[in-house]
Simulated assay, not measured.
Amino acid sequence: MVHAENGDAVYEGQRRMIELGITGPEGHALSRPPVLEGEATARAIKLAGLKVIGEPVVSGLVLNDSWLWDPDFITAAKYVMSPPIRAAGHGKALQAALSMGTLQLVGTDHCTFNSTQKALGIDDFQKIPNGVNGIEERMHLVWDTMVESGQISVTDYVRVTSTECARIFNIYPRKGAIRAGSDADIIILNPNSSFEISAKSHHSRSDTNVYEGWRGKGKVEVTISGGRVVWLNDELKVFPGSAKNVEMRPFSYLFNGIDKADAKHLSSLKAPVKRFRATT
């Protein structure tokens, strides 16, 4: 896994923003434009080789950067994350790529800071802690944005939120499937039920939520973990000592055929070298 940015270029961008007197949260996005993320992603893919997976995070999938320009610092600062949330068209492009299978699954990069912590950068955007919430909201937002709009099917929803993740991390079918021998980790989502997101009702200790006021369709009403109901009627039921470590063995399906590709590459390196003479 890589953080797809260029540190030296970001540093230069930050320096320029400060020199221009741009110290607010908008300076964060301006200092690390999309071209830097694109360059770093392309470089990572080139270094990695043939098999690459793409995972948009929920914030990039459904939000846009307009809030970074809000005149209220606390409001704007809560949207600061890296790489930054982009302009509206970028989210639409990610949604299209997810629906076509170019991107394989959806994560959150959940990393929250409260308003007091974000205020550390009130005079300098470089000091704003980077990160937004999303782990509690992910399943609802992906359904509302992708399934309700008709961009993906119910089956694809299961794949991009669960099954493909388990396959990539090589814990399928123990996880990511409902079948005999699997771990009985199940959610029951009611597509006809509505939800509203707010910092006043979420289960995080943070006093802010980047999806504040979002209303949509598709609500998780029951969660079963290891065969036990742990979430029902908006109430969490905790079973101390029930957590288990799940070993993620190396070499998932993504490595299939890599040995043959390597052998072909090595054989090409052993081929006779052709020499050319320049005439100009």
Rank of each mutant, 00 (worst) to 15 (best):
D8H: 10
K264R: 13
L61M: 04
F276V: 13
S31Y: 01
V160K: 02
M1H: 11
L120C: 14
V80A: 04
P71A: 12
V160C: 04
R86V: 03
M139W: 02
D123M: 10
W214V: 10
K46T: 07
P56M: 03
T223K: 08
G101Q: 07
L61G: 00
K270P: 02
P83R: 09
F239I: 01
G27M: 00
S206H: 09
L61T: 05
S153W: 04
A9T: 13
H202M: 11
Y253H: 11
V58G: 01
T145M: 07
E196K: 12
A263Q: 12
G49N: 02
G21I: 00
R275M: 15
V106P: 00
D185E: 10
T108E: 08
F276A: 13
L269E: 10
N190C: 10
A76M: 02
D109A: 03
L50W: 06
S242Y: 07
A180Y: 15
S204T: 12
A199S: 14
P56T: 07
C111H: 05
F276C: 14
R205A: 15
R16Q: 11
A88M: 08
A88E: 14
V35D: 09
K274S: 10
H203V: 12
V147N: 07
K92W: 07
S194F: 12
K92V: 15
K200M: 12
P191W: 10
I152K: 00
